[in-house]
Amino acid sequence: MEVNVKLFATLREGRFKAEKTELQENSRVIDVVKKYDLPPEEVAICLVNGRDADNDHVLNDGDTLSIFPPVGGG
């Protein structure tokens, strides 16, 4: 299946803004995090088709997964 992965802020460094990726059926959010070697501590928000999702969320063909790092300063 194909999932559209969108990375935000510093997660784009050395990677990409948006990319369509081929995944096995029943892949989860964590599989994408691992595939792109995203440091777990730099993954704060995951949205699947604009809705909150955690690492165990199972992806479907055509989904858009957006991933954001933690931004904590003031």
Partner: peptide
């Protein structure tokens, strides 16, 4: 609490 998951600092 939905947007800022537990932790002290972020990428700053």
């Amino acid at each position: 609490s939905r947007l800022f998951h537990e932790g002290e600092k972020g990428i700053e």
